[in-house]
Simulated scan of single mutants.
Amino acid sequence: MKELAYYDGRIGTPEELMVPFQDRVHFFGDGVYDATVGGNHKVYLLEDHLDRFYSSAKALDIKIPMDKKELGELLTKLLSMVEGNTHFVYWQVTRGTAPRDHAYDEAMLGKLWVMIRPNKLKDPDVPIRLITMEDTRFLYCNIKTLNLLPSVLASQEALKAGAMETVLHRGDMVTECAHSNVSILKNGTFLSHPNDNLILRGIAKTHMIQACYRLGIQVLERAFTMEELMDADEVIVTSSSNFCLHADVIDGKSVGGKDPVTLKKIQDAVLEEYLEYTGRDSIFD
């Protein structure tokens, strides 16, 4: 199978599976999700992603229909059924099916979805372009919900501008990107927004910070400004499907490129962890 879909115990292709009309996702976007890379048929950083997934569901009182161990085994089994070496592994849980009503039955059991498709990691040596936008999302960004319309609009603006991502900011304070975390290097120090309710706790970012500690690079988890972003020695963008990319243009202005040695050390450490975890020889197929 080249691409797999799973819904509430049924397996097929994305075109084959049907979702009940009254699944609350259709009316309210009522659910949470998580995603990572599958390398060599291993779900990368599985435990970290499961912890975040169950934490998000608990924050919204959504009941996942199986425990972490069972879900981990299911994801691993489903990944083994898909052809190829590198995959995008995505899963979500919706609150369940019921006639449309804002209030819900607290005993309702959630519906589990999984999608697995081929994926290619981007070359970390190739710089990316970014744009910026005011962050107008709600104040629960730490929960990985399915309510992603602001991120959809921000991503579309990046596409129209010929950029890969949009950096979001609340006033002068940088938060994160539309679907990534953004951090900076300045004078040998790694700076990144703290894990509060204004950003999603990025697992790739967390492991990059751990790599910095191993390398003896100072880390400051504090909010930084738009001015600091534009003046940074390096601008680093991370996500669960692209671990450590760097930007050279923001809003049409050149940025970064001032500390390639430290950047490369971090990139190499992050990629080494991925290759060791998955047993791969290279990030490229």
Results as ranks from 00 to 15, higher is better:
M1L: 13
E3C: 10
Y6D: 09
Y6T: 00
R10G: 00
I11L: 11
P14Q: 03
P14A: 02
P20S: 02
D30I: 05
D30E: 09
G31P: 05
A35R: 07
A35P: 00
T36M: 03
L46F: 06
E47N: 11
D48Y: 11
D51L: 13
R52G: 07
F53M: 01
S56A: 03
L60P: 05
P65I: 08
E70P: 06
E70C: 01
E70Q: 13
S80Y: 03
M81L: 15
V82P: 04
W91S: 01
V93K: 01
R95P: 07
G96D: 09
A98D: 13
P99Y: 00
D101F: 14
Y104V: 13
D105F: 01
L109M: 13
L112D: 04
I116L: 01
I116W: 02
R117L: 12
P124L: 04
I128E: 00
L130T: 11
Y140D: 15
N142P: 04
I143E: 01
T145D: 03
L146D: 03
L146T: 12
N147V: 00
P150V: 02
L153C: 00
A154M: 02
S155D: 11
A161L: 06
A161Q: 03
G162V: 06
A163Q: 02
M164A: 15
E165Y: 04
T166S: 05
L168V: 06
R170I: 15
D172I: 10
M173P: 08
M173Q: 12
T175D: 06
C177G: 15
A178C: 13
S180L: 10
N181T: 14
G188Y: 01
T189G: 10
F190L: 15
S192H: 15
S192K: 13
D196H: 08
D196F: 04
R201I: 11
G202S: 03
Q210D: 15
Q210I: 11
Q210C: 05
R214W: 06
E221N: 05
E228D: 10
V235R: 11
V237S: 13
V237Y: 11
S241F: 09
N242F: 02
N242C: 14
C244Y: 02
A247L: 09
I250D: 02
S254C: 12
G257T: 02
K264V: 04
K264Q: 14
I266W: 10
L271G: 10
E272F: 07
E272T: 10
E276A: 13
R280H: 06
R280C: 14
D281P: 00
I283A: 03
F284P: 08
F284Y: 12
